[in-house]
């Protein structure tokens, strides 16, 4: 059973069909890249997979469960298992919150009270010294901030990360370190990655499967042999 199985996904904005019957599937421990130019529907696909924007058609099966037919309340217990990581590392962290609180937030949402040790372990996991927990986002570099965003996504114990251009805002020498981290985490934890990326060199390096999109449709796909 695939970790994620998307069938004939449709997303419309008014009369515009942003995602037009897109299908793909992803196994645990695997990276599927959605690749294509801006406006091709890859980010809309990501939001619809996460049910952050309910799709207008099609099905999303996650760990064998069909998500589109679930109510928001029914989705809630599944959300910790599928987490987003966004492009803008500063914009995705509350500027007034300390890194330690930002990382712990997904656990608090679940009604848990994370210990300082748990947070320190998450920061360590993404290659940040636990002392960074006391800082605020603007005191971190772009690469460090993105690592904090990944730590927060890991906090709730996900099986799937939906990574929307996670390294596009980073300088090349810093980007390499974040890609290495994502590869290590996947190897260690068996995570599935839905990896949205417009950079073909990164996709070629990182992905097991690639789905190429244009104007809302899948135009081609390949899978690493």
């Amino acid at each position: 059973m695939p970790l994620l199985d998307v069938r004939d996904l449709v997303v419309r904005y008014g009369t515009v069909t942003a995602v037009d019957r897109v299908s793909f599937s992803l196994e645990a421990g695997e990276t599927l890249a959605l690749n294509g130019p801006s406006g091709c529907g890859k980010s809309s696909t990501a939001l619809a997979v996460l049910q952050l924007r309910r799709p207008d058609g099609g099905e999303v099966h996650f760990e064998g469960q069909e998500l589109t037919s679930l109510t928001d309340r029914e989705l809630r217990p599944l959300r910790p298992r599928m987490q987003p990581v966004f492009q803008d590392p500063y914009g995705s962290l509350n500027p007034r919150h300390r890194i330690r609180d930002a990382v712990a937030e997904p656990l608090r949402v679940q009604g848990r009270r994370p210990t300082p040790g748990e947070v320190a372990e998450l920061l360590d996991r993404v290659g940040l010294d636990p002392s960074y927990g006391d800082r605020r986002p603007h005191e971190l570099s772009g690469g460090q901030c993105q690592r904090a965003g990944i730590a927060r996504a890991l906090a709730s114990g996900p099986r799937l990360l939906v990574l929307d251009e996670p390294v596009s805002a980073l300088d090349p020498s810093v980007r390499a370190g974040v890609l290495n981290l994502l590869a290590d985490l996947q190897d260690d934890l068996g995570l599935g990655y839905l990896f949205i990326c417009h950079d073909r060199a990164v996709v070629r390096h990182f992905a097991d499967r690639v789905v190429e999109m244009r104007e809302g449709r899948v135009i081609s796909g390949w899978r690493r042999p």
């Binding site: 020498s173 390499a176 060199a201």
Partner: peptide, 24 residues
């Protein structure tokens, strides 16, 4: 040299990229 080597186009699949330590 470090900047060019850290680019994914030079690296074989999923081998660790030679990242430069630290930040500018």
């Amino acid at each position: 040299a470090g900047l060019l080597a850290s680019l994914p186009e030079h690296a074989p699949r999923r081998r660790r990229l030679p990242a430069l330590p630290g930040t500018p």
